[in-house]
Design a protein around this nucleic acid. Structure first.
Length: 615
DNA sequence: GCCGTCACG
DNA sequence: ACGTACGTGACGGCA
């Protein structure tokens, strides 16, 4: 077992150089001394250092530092207590690490550096320099896995983990109460493990040719995401409260009617109880089944609505309940009392395709459709003197499909700036674009979505309520008109079968082991992954590149505009009104020119005092 | 803790 | 005969 020691209670240089070679020197035996020289003032400043923050909680926007573990040489780590119940005070401890962490020339190694950077910023320490994030490295090596905790990553790549945090914490409420000797042993291990992981993970990144994606996209993106999370977005709290009240009164008004139609009172939010009412009491005909019983999902209820008036009322009730519980009731609880804004987390290591995700709260699934969608988006507002500036890619996934497939028809459609759904409708219905009806265009739009998802007759038939046979005819017709797209699908499946993975435009890889599974359903699903991942993932590469370039220009030109949200194909900025014109041009340009594809990229922009009007 | 459901791209 | 469109996160109900 490695030995770790306490920084701040003994000589840090001696500590880091000799601890590992002096097993007698138990961390708990650390000799107190007064050496508070900054780490960088010692001879031979390190070229790289790994570090890890122990904090009072998981939220970098509200929790505070308990201590910092540091490692500048493999196998030798130390721990700087900051707010333990006994230990050096905050200022002296942080001033020891500040010169190193703020030194641009020293590379920073860590596991989930965005978190550590944000929590340090709140103490006035600005992490700078090249980043080596081992969590992101582990993610690029295997994006199929969603848990890239330090413990898991250690287990996977080094065959050993670490003591569970909960075990160290015991019955104590905070890490600050863990006795120093134990805290040192636990915490120092983190920095040491990150340092050790860095070596092996970088070898593997190189083997998989992921270095460019890592250093040119994912590492710079960490700074952009940290800025976005720190900026947060302003919310009209009072208005949210009004919306909750409105939703509640509408729902209350519906309840007695629901109970009358059902013949009894029951929990409307319980699918199980609802199924009992619909399929037993009312004798309606069950449709699809779930693992646990008859489905009461939207497709089923819409079908039942033809036979009885209750299902439609239930659907409307559910919509209101969803909006109330998930948005108008929940968002106010996540307003940070210090900033008065909502600070989401943008997760960089979750999705299998390379997209970001957003959580606590998820700001990538804020309602947009219907009158309530508008009402809820009006609650997202700009600071006084600012506007919200929105920019979204038009048909980005189909444009990427055009680029990677080289399909002549798709290339031509985008180069001549056609309405692509209308074009598809004209093709599959055999009419001229002028003759395309709203219904035909709607179906064609679904077909185009289906193509990107890895279309199947069953999937398409479910989506537009036709028979699988008819759906198959649409698909055949589509492929006849788009042989390049058909060839892409055949080729990418063959590629996946041979290599075991697929890749995006920036070389992001996703292994698809099931592609060789003899089980037909498993294999077909794998084939849809193979088709969809390069498209969805390249779109993620594209907007990530745009974000990095845009953030760089905003910073270089000293602009006050901030990127506040990314919603897969959209960026939302908060922009001082006087910067609007300049930043609008810059934003559109950086998004449209983030990559040069064989079709033009088109970005629509809008702005306003709130998100609804910016769209 | 899992499931069904539903909000988004 | 079987049963799915791709990618997420959050909520309430229920074991």
């Amino acid at each position: 077992m490695k030995q770790y020691s306490l920084f701040g209670e003994q000589d840090p240089v001696k500590d880091m150089k000799e601890t590992a070679a002096a097993p007698d020197n138990q961390p708990g035996d650390a000799v107190p001394h007064d050496d508070k020289r900054p780490l960088s003032s010692y001879p031979a400043p390190p070229s790289e250092i790994s570090f890890d923050i122990e904090a009072t909680g998981p939220d970098p926007m509200s929790d505070t530092i308990v201590g910092i573990s540091l490692c500048r040489e493999m196998g030798k780590a130390c721990y700087v207590p900051v707010r333990h119940t006994q230990g050096p005070n905050l200022e002296s401890a942080l001033e020891i690490v500040r010169p190193v962490l703020e030194d641009e020339a020293i590379k920073k190694i860590g596991h989930n550096l965005k978190y550590d950077m944000l929590i340090l910023r709140r103490e006035g320490v600005e992490v700078r320099g090249t980043l080596y994030d081992t969590m992101v490295a582990a993610y690029l090596l295997n994006p199929n896995r969603s848990d890239h905790s330090l413990e898991n990553t250690g287990l996977e790549h080094l065959q050993y983990g670490k003591r569970p945090f909960r075990e160290v914490l015991g019955k104590r409420s905070s890490f600050a109460d863990v006795p120093i000797a134990e805290a040192v042993n636990y915490a120092a291990e983190d920095a040491a493990l990150a340092m050790e992981l860095k070596g092996i993970l970088f070898e593997r990144l190189r083997e998989d040719d992921l270095e460019d994606l890592y250093f040119q996209t994912e590492m710079p993106l960490i700074y952009v995401l940290a800025d976005m999370e720190e900026a947060g977005v302003k919310i009209n709290r009072a208005r949210l409260g009004e919306l909750s009240k409105e939703l509640q009164s509408e729902m209350s008004a519906m309840e007695s009617g629901i109970y009358d139609l059902a013949g009894e009172r029951f929990n409307i939010n319980s699918p199980k109880q609802l199924a009992g009412i619909l399929f037993e009491n009312l004798g309606l005909k069950p449709g699809k089944k779930t693992k646990t019983g008859f489905s009461t999902g939207v497709d089923v209820l819409e079908e039942l609505a033809k036979a009885h008036e209750l299902p439609l009322i239930i659907l409307n009730y559910r919509t209101l309940n969803k909006l109330k519980t998930t948005y108008t009731d929940s968002l106010p609880k996540l307003i940070n009392p210090k900033t008065g804004r909502i600070h989401t987390s943008f997760n960089q290591t979750v999705t299998a395709t390379g997209r970001l995700s957003s959580s606590e709260p998820n700001l990538q699934n804020i309602p947009v459709r219907g009158e309530w969608g508008t009402k809820i988006r009006e609650v997202f507002i700009a600071e006084e003197g600012n506007v919200l500036l929105s920019a979204d890619y038009s048909q980005v996934e189909l444009r990427i499909l055009a680029h990677i497939s080289g399909d002549a028809g798709l290339l031509e459609a985008f180069r001549s700036d056609m309405d692509v759904h209308t074009g598809t409708a004209a093709e599959i219905f055999g009419v001229s674009p002028k003759e395309v009806t709203t219904d035909m265009r709607r179906i064609a739009k679904t077909v185009n979505f289906g193509v990107v998802y890895g279309i199947s007759p069953y999937g398409l038939s479910e989506a537009i309520s036709i028979t699988p046979k008819e759906a198959g005819q649409y698909i055949d017709c589509y492929f006849e008109k788009h042989p390049g797209v058909k060839a892409y699908m055949d080729n990418i499946i063959m590629f996946a079968r041979e290599k075991g993975y697929v890749a995006t435009l920036l070389g992001r890889k996703r292994r698809i082991p099931e592609i060789r599974n003899p089980n037909t359903n498993a294999r077909l699903q794998a084939e849809r992954f193979a088709i969809n991942t390069p498209i969805q993932g390249s779109a993620a590469d594209l907007i990530k590149t745009a974000m990095i370039n845009l953030a760089g220009r905003l910073r270089a030109q000293g602009m006050k505009s901030r990127i506040v949200l990314q919603i897969h194909d959209e960026l939302l900025l908060e922009t001082p009104s006087h910067e609007l014109k300049e930043v609008g041009v810059m934003l559109k340009h950086e998004m449209e020119n983030a990559m040069q594809l064989s079709v033009p990229l088109r970005v629509d922009i809008g702005w306003g005092p709130n998100w609804a009007e910016a769209h």
